[in-house]
């Protein structure tokens, strides 16, 4: 019974969503037809058509899936390394006072510089290839994950810690069974932020220097003044960004549930 109710709600919501998207597309189409924007902007039909087309007809060297894979290939390894390292260092900084005092100044030095601003120097250090892109994505992931891991480790309920101590748990045990599980939700929100930051950064990096990838699609549209291509790129970026965020949320839902149950 519960399920049918939920289903109904879902159906209702999707109808609303569909209507709102349709209205948006109609306004877009209408605006393009009737106003001056039409000179530079294509209508939604053309963009959608071109977007589907881009799966079969290559833009530059690759088709849309090819470009997306290139971008993901730049994001994922660096994101994973940055996240893992960020979690380790963040928790260490949040839990061990002296680690924090030693690493904090260094961290505070890189934190305020946006990863995008690292692009030029990373090109000098790591060249124009993938190395420089991995480096800045690493930074884009590392910085927010550290921040959230620190606050995760610091937010542990002191009552729980005292209980653990009183019941005779040693430091290691407390760390493993209380601090780590307690930090997981924080870490996950850091991972979420880091993922969207990484995605935005790869787009920027590809716009600044590359010859493939979704960021390249939009920047190369400037070469020929092809606004449709630029919008096709935006659609691709949006969809992949959306899928990444949803996947992360799923993962968080599963892992956090598991943590809670274990506690």
């Amino acid at each position: 019974m519960m399920d049918t109710k939920k289903l109904k709600q879902l159906a209702k919501d999707s109808v609303y969503g569909l209507i709102s998207v349709c209205v948006f597309l109609c306004i877009w189409a209408f605006g393009v037809r009737t106003s001056d924007i039409g000179i530079v902007m294509p209508g939604p039909g053309k963009v959608i058509y071109e977007f589907i087309q881009s799966f079969f007809v290559p833009i530059g060297k690759y088709t849309m899936p090819g470009h997306i894979l290139w971008s993901l290939y730049r994001v994922l390894p660096a994101y994973i390394v940055g996240s893992v390292l960020g979690i380790v260092i963040g928790i260490a900084m949040g839990w061990f006072r002296y680690v924090n005092s030693f690493l904090r100044p260094l961290y505070e030095m890189i934190r305020p510089i946006p990863p995008i601003a690292w692009i030029p120097i990373s090109i000098v250090w790591f060249g124009i290839g993938e190395g420089s892109k991995w480096f800045i994505i690493f930074l884009a992931a590392f910085v927010p994950v550290v921040l959230n891991s620190i606050s995760g480790a610091k937010s542990v309920d002191p009552l729980l810690l005292k209980c653990g101590e009183m019941l005779g748990a040693d430091k290691k045990y407390i760390f493993r069974t209380i601090v780590l599980p307690y930090s997981v939700p924080y870490i996950f929100s850091g991972l979420q932020v880091a993922l969207s930051a990484s995605w935005a950064t790869v787009v920027a990096a590809e716009m600044i220097r590359s010859s493939e990838g979704v960021g390249w699609i939009i920047i190369s549209s400037m070469d020929t003044n092809n606004v449709t291509q630029s919008l096709v790129g935006i659609v691709g970026i949006g969809i992949v960004g959306f899928i990444l965020a949803v996947m992360m949320r799923e993962l968080e839902g599963r892992l956090c549930r598991w943590t809670v149950r274990e506690n």
Binding site: S196, W199, V203, M207, S221, I237, G238
Partner: peptide, 14 residues
């Protein structure tokens, strides 16, 4: 989910 930077070329055109 569309990062702000992705809008740059379009905004330049507009």
């Amino acid at each position: 989910p569309i990062p702000g930077v992705a809008w740059i070329p379009l905004m330049i055109v507009i």
